[in-house]
């Protein structure tokens, strides 16, 4: 059983955090909320998504799993206006999700959860640096880097967080000192390189967050953590590094 009402925009923003990486996902439902773990087909990036029942106006669910085609789901959510309410209702008999918003009534066929790629385990990583900053800043850095290269370095040097991209011809660097960050903790200098293809997808959702925490190491995956649904949910992205060319 699953029956819920939520603000359409809040929900769309939340689901987008997952749909930006994968086309289909398995959502786990409990009485306390919904969650999903998914890794992109190339095994380079993963998302862990949790939304608490409190994010919803009403939320009732029994334990279960639903498989959702996120491309179709996002299309439907895109039809809702900003302030619309979204009513979700799982029809157990037909295994379809009924979605009502602004007078529209959709029926979304669900996917067989066993046909979706297995959920990844979330690796536990001890990373030496933690930077907390505004999501918009990071999005700006990614957009700037894209103009010159297809990959970008994230690093901490002498208590300054920096983002750097170098193409065949041009170079861009953005430095944010500790004083302009929400916080910075680091046990030394770190630097890892990442694909902008992935970062660009990730900042779509992360760019809207007031505060993003970045856990960073050297030639290690980066971990981005931020709140969604008015603080009643979290998204964690992990992105594997690229190795600097020999």
């Amino acid at each position: 059983m699953f029956k819920a009402v939520i603000n359409a925009e809040v929900f769309k923003d939340a689901i987008e955090a997952v749909s930006t990486l994968v086309d289909e996902a398995k959502f786990r439902l409990t009485k306390d909320g919904m969650s999903a773990r998914a890794v992109d087909p190339a095994n380079v990036a993963m998302v862990a998504f949790d939304v608490n029942a409190k994010a919803f106006d009403t939320f009732e669910a029994t334990e279960g799993e639903i498989g959702i085609d996120l491309v179709r789901f996002m299309d439907i959510l895109g039809m809702a206006s900003k302030d619309d309410k979204l009513q979700l209702n799982l029809n157990e008999e037909t295994r379809k999700l009924e979605i009502r918003t602004g007078g529209l009534a959709y029926t979304l066929s669900l996917l067989d959860p066993s046909s979706i790629r297995k959920e990844p385990k979330v690796p536990s990583l001890e990373l030496p640096a933690k930077i907390v900053l505004n999501g918009t800043e990071l999005r700006r850095a990614v957009k700037a880097a894209e103009k010159v290269s297809d990959h970008m370095a994230l690093g901490v040097q002498d208590k300054t967080f920096y983002v750097e991209a170098e193409g065949d011809l041009d170079k861009v660097r953005l430095e944010i000192p500790e004083s302009s960050l929400v916080s910075l903790k680091s046990t030394g200098n770190v630097r890892s390189l990442f694909s902008l293809d992935y970062l660009n997808d990730i900042v779509k959702s992360l760019g809207k967050a007031e505060q993003v925490s970045i856990d960073l190491g050297s030639d290690y995956p980066v971990k981005f953590t931020f709140g969604i649904a008015g603080g009643n949910g979290t998204v964690v992205y992990l992105l594997a590094p690229r190795i600097e060319s020999e």
Binding site: V39, A42, P123, P221
Partner: peptide, 14 residues
Amino acid sequence: MSETKKQKTLSAWF
């Protein structure tokens, strides 16, 4: 071929 060598996957850390 140069791309293949550079991008790591998460599986190395699972």
